[in-house]
Amino acid sequence: MSISTPAGDKRRPSAVSTGKKPPAGKSSSSSTSSTSTARKPSTASKAAGTAARPGGKAGGAGGGGKGRKPITPVKVSQGRSWGPIAMFVAVGVIAAGIIGYGSWAAFKGSQPWEQKAADIDGIVNYRDNPDKTLTEANHAWGPLTYKLTPPVGGNHNYNWQNCMGDVYDAPIANEHAVHAMEHGAVWVAYKSGLAADQVEKLASKVRGNEYMLMSPIENLDHEVSLQAWGYQLKVDSVDDGRIDQFISALRQNATVEAGATCSGGITATGTTPRDIGKDQQGG
């Protein structure tokens, strides 16, 4: 079909040149226009195939011989060629669009969470850090020391902090919070003294969502610090869009204990770890 466009254009001068023939009656003109219509594709393809100008001319003469004016074939050739072209362009564009969008969405959607995390501006990935104490995961009793504030992993208490969307209004023990992160929780920490409406904005992202917990920290170096196992992002506004990005990418995904739960943990606040179960263990 694409051939018909240039062929049709080529035909125009030949049709004009044959316009010298005496015009016939109106009815014969419209009937010849149909015969010329029927003839034209073969003529055009012949002309395109042989690329011989006399051949084309002869064909044109044959077609236009009975025709009244050269205008009629020109109009017909426009109607015939642009329609199919528009159709095939539409078919191509729409089909390619659907497939392209589908493929792109599939690729984008199936991006691993690690990639989504890596794309967050300012996030720090401590899983790759050569200091493996940052993300080692043994159980221990009593107070533990952490190199990062807030910590993103490391040895931790036997008991985890309850992370069923719990919004704690006072500081909690790192030893329990780290264990909650091992289970896949995102820990939203904010600097003590943050305005109540700001705290509420954060709480609305946490409350009712398992694998989330939130608590204040004294003298935190930023307004808000988000932690998941091995990852940290510090921001200075509760309206920072990266907070939702962090939660979306890492909540539950960052677990190093797939299937571990958030209920049944410590629900009390206070920065001293609670060694519940130590007596029974004899440790």
Binding site: M87, V89, I94, A96, A106
Partner: peptide, 24 residues
């Protein structure tokens, strides 16, 4: 008219091909 036919055919072709080659 041709354009309408093209849109319809394009949607059909895109969906059929999409179902076959795009798992999502």
């Amino acid at each position: 008219g041709w354009l309408a036919a093209g849109v319809a055919l394009g949607l059909l072709l895109g969906l059929v091909a999409g179902l076959l080659i795009v798992p999502s």
